[in-house]
Computed example of a mutant assay.
Amino acid sequence: MNQIDHIAIAVFSIKQTSQLLHQLFNWHFSDIQEVPEQEIKASFASLDHVHIELIEPMSDSSKLHTFLTKKGEGLHHIALKSGDIHADLNHLEHLGVQLLQKSAQKGASGKQIAFISPKETSGVLFELCEPLKGEKHGNE
């Protein structure tokens, strides 16, 4: 858990934001993928060894839509690479860390993810992310 996999930015429109970031920084985003398990749409830009993920709610009833309504667009979470998400979750639980889910769930690109409560980390939402073997983000 000592490498950043990606930084996620919550947006109302991936299309608009990706166009703006392309214009400003020449970032190239992958095709938009739907992640029904998380009720989001996602798109990635690769910057050396870190990815920027734009996430958009799939509906007004999603948790992400609630987040955007309360806090507005901006940083959503920082994802840390996990070599074994189940072992890392067990370790954190053993330490008494509050997890938002006790087991991994399916995230974007089919990887396994789980979140640590931001109450534990000075208000920052951290995601554990176990990449698939040989994983490539959309535009790599």
Rank of each mutant, 00 (worst) to 15 (best):
E37Q: 10
G96M: 03
L89C: 00
M1P: 10
E73T: 05
P57C: 06
G134I: 00
A10G: 12
L128E: 01
I7Y: 03
A104G: 15
L54W: 04
E93S: 15
E135I: 00
A42I: 03
Q105R: 08
H137T: 14
Q16G: 08
G107L: 04
F67T: 01
E93G: 11
L89G: 01
K70I: 10
H6F: 01
S117N: 08
H22G: 08
E53T: 10
N2K: 11
S61P: 01
M1N: 08
C129H: 13
L128S: 02
Q23R: 10
N26K: 14
Q23C: 04
K81N: 15
F115R: 10
I40G: 03
E120V: 04
L80H: 04
S122M: 08
S117G: 05
Q112E: 05
Q3T: 15
V97F: 07
H65P: 06
L21Q: 02
I7L: 06
L21F: 12
K111L: 07
T121P: 05
I32Q: 12
E127M: 00
L20R: 10
H86Y: 06
G72L: 10
Q19I: 07
H94Q: 15
A45C: 13
I116L: 05
L20E: 12
L100T: 03
K106V: 15
I116S: 02
S122F: 10
D31H: 13
Q23K: 13
E120R: 05
I7N: 03
E140G: 07
A104E: 13
H22Y: 08
I32F: 05
E127W: 00
F44L: 11
E34L: 14
S62L: 11
H94R: 14
Q38D: 09
Q38E: 14
W27R: 04
A104H: 11
A45T: 05
H91Y: 14
Q101F: 11
S117H: 11
L24I: 09
G96V: 06
N139W: 09
L95C: 13
H49I: 10
H49C: 12
P118T: 02
H77Y: 02
Q19F: 09
L68Y: 02
T66F: 09
H6L: 02
E34K: 14
K106D: 06
K102P: 13
K63A: 14
C129Q: 06
H65C: 13
I55Y: 01
M1G: 12
H91N: 14
S18G: 10
Q105N: 06
E140W: 05
G72E: 11
K81L: 15
G83T: 12
T17A: 04
S82L: 09
C129I: 11
